[in-house]
């Protein structure tokens, strides 16, 4: 399947990632000793460091790859190599992003492996949860980096809409969160809200990325128009959906109050 072939190619392309991951893994092992944490149990320090490094490595790599892979090729014109293949635009976009994501996640695993094997935190399920969570978080990070980089490289004024939209969305989510917390919405509901606040814009970013490449192709101006409008629309829809629980709380409090 084309997506698989393209993802595999993307991973094979960036062998340096493994070197970096190996380096970070060793650093993770050595760091507690270097900083002379003789007081705190070195084992715990290693465990914490492992989680932190995993998070940092995966997050950074996701952002770097997201910003470099396709936006770079769009700006330089090298995207043509992929677009003259008999494969769909979606396969090119999602294949490459998948490859980058797998690379980031696999690199994170390498970073964390010594801690899992050597460290005292032998709770494999716990580690799996950590790795799994960072892997999932990497998706919106990568998509955001991709979209922002494309927006920047397209060199049109639509970037103002993109940044404004994202900023407004972020502010809106924070406002809703505060109000929900004050309305004592309950822990479970807040968690669900946060999850939705992350998943919905991720979907919006994905749709925008797809439309940008499919409708723009080598025409960056056209692509950016599609990106900006679909992202703004997607964020608006997300904001509306997210405000639903708060509005129901308001409505119920009005009827009771």
């Amino acid at each position: 399947m084309s997506i698989r072939v393209i993802a595999a190619r993307e991973m094979a392309e960036r062998k340096l990632v493994w070197v970096a991951a190996g380096y970070m893994a060793l650093a993770g092992l050595a760091l507690p000793y270097l900083r002379g944490l003789s007081g705190a149990p070195a084992a715990d320090a290693r465990g914490v460091l492992g989680v932190a490094l995993n998070l940092a490595f995966v997050g950074t790599l996701a952002a770097l790859l997201g910003a470099a892979m396709i936006p770079g090729d769009l700006a330089s014109g090298r995207i043509g190599f992929y677009l003259v293949r008999p494969v769909s635009v979606a396969a090119v976009l999602w294949g490459r992003l998948l490859g980058g994501w797998l690379l980031a996640v696999a690199g994170g695993l390498v970073v964390v492996l010594p801690q899992v094997v050597l460290g005292p935190w032998r709770d494999y399920r716990g580690w799996a949860l950590v790795v799994g969570c960072t892997a999932l978080l990497a998706i919106p990070v990568m998509l955001l980096a991709h979209v922002l980089a494309v927006s920047w490289r397209s060199r049109t004024l639509w970037i103002l809409l993109d940044l404004t939209g994202l900023g407004l969305y972020g502010w809106f989510v924070v406002q809703l969160l505060i109000r929900l917390a004050m309305a004592r919405a309950g822990r479970v509901n807040l968690d669900a809200f946060l999850l939705a606040a992350l998943v919905l814009p991720t979907l919006a970013l994905a749709v925008a990325a797809q439309l940008q490449l499919d409708q723009g192709r080598t025409d960056l101006r056209r692509g950016h128009r599609w990106l900006a409008l679909s992202l703004a629309g997607g964020l608006l829809v997300s904001a509306l959906l997210l405000s639903a629980p708060y509005l129901t709380i308001l409505a119920s409090s009005r009827t009771t109050g």
């Binding site: 995207i79 043509g80 190599f81 003259v84 008999p86």
Partner: peptide
């Protein structure tokens, strides 16, 4: 995509990774 299966392209500037 369907058309490109029957077309070979040599671009103006080399675009291989």
């Amino acid at each position: 995509a369907r058309a490109m299966a029957r077309v070979g392209v040599v671009p103006e500037t080399p675009d291989l990774p």
